[in-house]
Design a protein around this nucleic acid. Structure first.
Lengths: 340, 340
DNA sequence: TTGCCGAATGTTAGCGCTAACCTTCGAGCA
DNA sequence: TGCTCGAAGGTTAGCGCTAACATTCGGCAA
């Protein structure tokens, strides 16, 4: 009578190993580790010692399977290399990790299709919650999100309709406000430079356009957009192109501080006096913009706080509680500096 | 005779649901999805249709438990908000994701203690591989890594002894080379500004010191280090402090392009001509350094390639293969520009 | 003394999947 | 004709953990 071969080699120490070691049942060990208050002080101490001694490390997969909870959260951002999202990610990490949640980070590369694919993949992990950027999803992705019925918080933008939980600020308003600020300063021929044409960039552009149209000063040739990622070098190049197609500009609204810095450097090279001949405004409040010469006017965005608030809201939702607010507008801050 | 209550509510579609639907056994569905070549064309098609129809999503936890493979890789970096590591992370993502591996990203905040804690936590996920930054680990962490016997690749630095798999470049050499370059250019009173005193920064500092000592030109008061994170603002402040304690410097080696940019801006403010009165060199080859006025001499480091190579090597190791090389030196590139 | 209660621990049965071995069946060959 | 062989699919038994219910036992009110 041949015995069947058991699975695999000698694996790690398991719960039952610990249980056998001190002569109790496995469930007691489980309880001692997860709900210590259910186990008597003395026994708990013995268990802790045995865990230490045997070097027991729980197996998350088994726990997830048995409890139907993965203690993981999917986080989908458009880019891993953009400071904007990195700050938000850091905040999410800082909030979720202490609460015992693992982040599953996905980089959608600004593509709703890629996002849909990632979402599908990550649903296999049976996440307890989802943090997703914006509202620009494919119909299939929206269906996936709905049918999965997993608590979800949208970041960076605010829902324009419906009551999806969201944390962010109005991209449109911020674009409008910065343009309005330039108008109030007396600038009349204001250009707009944009890169990485994601929905948030586009909404800021709409704000820009609306403000200028209101003032009767909108001119399409003063708008310049490029789909490639934002960078300092691109800012320099875009300025050259702008001055070709609209040489009479008196101010430039750059959709990103990277671009603004590039524009600034290029102006220095072309001996264009800032802000006398040309005013420059950036966006996002990056560190460098405060220290350049002249310092750059910019709109500071609450990236870290958005991550913090979104993660906190998600923790509430995952705990089955109703958050105080499911639509959190964290605003933005216009920092007027020497470049305007 | 009371029946025992079954677990939980109606959960998602499972393998057996699909199997029942088309009247085969569960293992066949499993095979059709994981090793399609073992299932006949016709049946496979029917299975694919049923999967689609029923909206079946595999459960990773169950798969991990049954197969003793998690298809996940732990990635530990010192900071989530430092461009240096972000580029590396992006490369790792680009390499591991297509291969079906999930990243578990941990932010050690430059602390070996925090790293040890993260490592302990992440081992619960039974990762198939580990990517870790540098070689500066606590003794306990080293023991954990050894006893876990999980393929591990160290990033950014090169092993000085032993044969731990690693991908990076010599931090010491790069610091030495940049200093040597400044000496060759004729600078004699070269300062060193550093922030975020991690092991890599310190090694570059050693390279700097060695080069100057060799030339008989080392002066401790020309070295200025600050433990806080690197930033443009800090660069400006450090320059002010440097000029107080060593006003006669003729060149500054900044450990990071952020600092270098801050120094550059501050020099502009103080009317210090660059490179005539003071030369500036940075480190890491950030985008902005190429476009500033004057453009900044820097050492370009292969951050993306390190991530790529480390992840590839890890894939090899996880597949049980022996990589061509387990010690990959990707070098660095000195970019001589106008600031020196 | 009885009976009830609740704190502490145990028993049983899966969670959803796959490793390992087993069966079936038709093709190919001597 | 008998045999082998491999492709295609099935059976069984867990992986390590925890939900749900069960048991034990000392304390204590009636």
């Amino acid at each position: 009578m041949s015995e069947r071969k058991p699975r695999a080699g000698q694996s790690r120490t398991t719960l039952s190993d610990v249980a056998n070691h001190i002569g109790v049942s496995a469930i007691t060990i489980s309880r001692a580790l997860n709900k210590p208050e259910l186990v008597s002080e003395a026994l708990r101490q013995r268990i802790d010692d045995a865990v230490q001694l045997l070097g027991y490390v729980p197996n998350r997969a088994a726990r997830a399977l048995a409890s139907a909870k993965s203690h993981s959260v999917v986080v989908l951002v458009p880019s891993l290399s953009n400071t904007v999202f990195v700050d938000t990610l850091a905040a999410i990490h800082d909030t979720l990790h202490p609460a015992g949640y693992q982040m599953l980070i996905g980089d959608t590369r600004y593509s709703p299709q890629a996002e849909e694919k990632l979402l599908r993949t990550y649903l296999e992990y049976n996440p307890d919650g989802i943090l997703i950027t914006g509202f620009d999803h494919t119909p299939t992705a929206q269906t996936l999100l709905q049918t999965a019925a997993i608590p979800t918080v949208h970041m960076m933008e605010l829902a324009e309709q419906g009551d999806s939980p969201c944390v962010g600020f109005s991209q449109y308003d911020s674009g409008y406000a910065l343009t309005r600020f330039l108008l109030d300063k007396g600038y009349r021929r204001i250009a707009f430079l944009a890169a990485q044409l994601d929905p948030r960039t586009l909404k800021r552009g709409e704000g820009y356009r609306a403000a200028l149209r209101e003032a009767g000063l909108y001119q399409p040739q003063r708008e310049l957009a490029e789909a490639s990622p934002s960078s300092v070098g691109l800012g320099s190049r875009l300025l050259d192109r702008l001055l070709l197609q609209a040489p009479d500009c008196d101010a430039v609204f750059c959709n990103n501080d990277d671009l603004a810095l590039g524009v600034l450097f290029q102006c220095q090279r072309r001996q264009i006096a800032i802000p006398q001949q040309l005013a420059i405004a950036g966006f996002n409040g990056l560190d460098a913009s405060a220290w350049s010469n002249p310092s750059l006017t910019t709109v500071d965005t609450p990236r870290y706080d958005i991550g913090k608030a979104a993660a906190s809201m998600l923790l509430q939702l995952m705990a089955g509680k109703t958050p105080v607010a499911t639509r959190v507008d964290l605003g933005y801050q216009l920092l007027a500096r020497d470049s305007t």
